[in-house]
Amino acid sequence: MAIEPGAKAPDFQLRNQHGQTVSLADHRGEKNVVLLFYPFAFTGVCTGELCALRDELPTFVNDDVQLLAVSCDSPFTLRVFAEQEGLDYPLLSDFWPHGEAARAYGVFDEEKGCAVRGTFVIDKEGVVRWSVVNGLPDARDLNEYVTALNGL
Rank of each mutant, 00 (worst) to 15 (best):
residue 1 M to F: 06
residue 3 I to S: 02
residue 3 I to V: 08
residue 3 I to H: 02
residue 5 P to K: 08
residue 5 P to F: 00
residue 6 G to Y: 04
residue 7 A to K: 05
residue 9 A to P: 02
residue 9 A to F: 00
residue 9 A to H: 02
residue 10 P to E: 09
residue 11 D to K: 11
residue 13 Q to W: 02
residue 16 N to G: 01
residue 16 N to E: 12
residue 21 T to I: 12
residue 22 V to H: 02
residue 22 V to K: 03
residue 22 V to Y: 00
residue 25 A to D: 15
residue 28 R to N: 04
residue 29 G to W: 06
residue 31 K to D: 06
residue 32 N to P: 01
residue 34 V to L: 14
residue 35 L to W: 08
residue 36 L to P: 01
residue 36 L to Y: 15
residue 36 L to E: 06
residue 36 L to K: 02
residue 38 Y to L: 12
residue 40 F to T: 06
residue 42 F to V: 04
residue 44 G to Y: 13
residue 46 C to Y: 07
residue 46 C to L: 10
residue 48 G to K: 13
residue 49 E to R: 02
residue 49 E to K: 01
residue 50 L to R: 14
residue 51 C to I: 13
residue 52 A to Q: 11
residue 53 L to Y: 04
residue 58 P to C: 13
residue 58 P to V: 07
residue 58 P to T: 10
residue 59 T to N: 14
residue 61 V to W: 13
residue 62 N to W: 07
residue 63 D to G: 05
residue 63 D to I: 04
residue 64 D to K: 15
residue 69 A to T: 13
residue 70 V to Q: 03
residue 70 V to H: 00
residue 70 V to N: 03
residue 72 C to K: 04
residue 74 S to E: 14
residue 75 P to G: 10
residue 76 F to N: 13
residue 77 T to H: 05
residue 77 T to N: 15
residue 79 R to D: 14
residue 80 V to P: 04
residue 84 Q to A: 13
residue 84 Q to H: 15
residue 86 G to H: 07
residue 87 L to F: 06
residue 88 D to L: 12
residue 91 L to N: 10
residue 91 L to C: 08
residue 91 L to P: 12
residue 94 D to N: 06
residue 94 D to I: 07
residue 97 P to M: 04
residue 98 H to M: 02
residue 99 G to Y: 02
residue 100 E to H: 14
residue 102 A to R: 03
residue 103 R to P: 01
residue 104 A to S: 11
residue 105 Y to T: 03
residue 105 Y to N: 01
residue 108 F to D: 00
residue 108 F to V: 00
residue 110 E to F: 10
residue 110 E to G: 06
residue 110 E to W: 11
residue 110 E to K: 08
residue 112 K to W: 13
residue 112 K to M: 13
residue 113 G to Q: 09
residue 114 C to K: 05
residue 114 C to H: 03
residue 116 V to W: 00
residue 116 V to C: 10
residue 117 R to H: 13
residue 118 G to R: 05
residue 118 G to I: 08
residue 119 T to E: 08
residue 120 F to P: 01
residue 121 V to D: 07
residue 121 V to R: 00
residue 121 V to G: 01
residue 123 D to K: 00
residue 123 D to I: 00
residue 124 K to Y: 01
residue 125 E to Q: 00
residue 127 V to F: 04
residue 130 W to A: 09
residue 130 W to P: 07
residue 131 S to N: 15
residue 132 V to M: 05
residue 132 V to H: 14
residue 133 V to Y: 03
residue 133 V to K: 14
residue 134 N to Q: 11
residue 134 N to Y: 03
residue 136 L to A: 13
residue 138 D to E: 13
residue 139 A to Y: 05
residue 139 A to N: 09
residue 139 A to S: 11
residue 142 L to I: 09
residue 147 T to C: 07
residue 147 T to P: 10
residue 147 T to Y: 10
residue 148 A to V: 01
residue 150 N to K: 15
residue 150 N to E: 11
residue 151 G to N: 15
residue 152 L to Q: 11
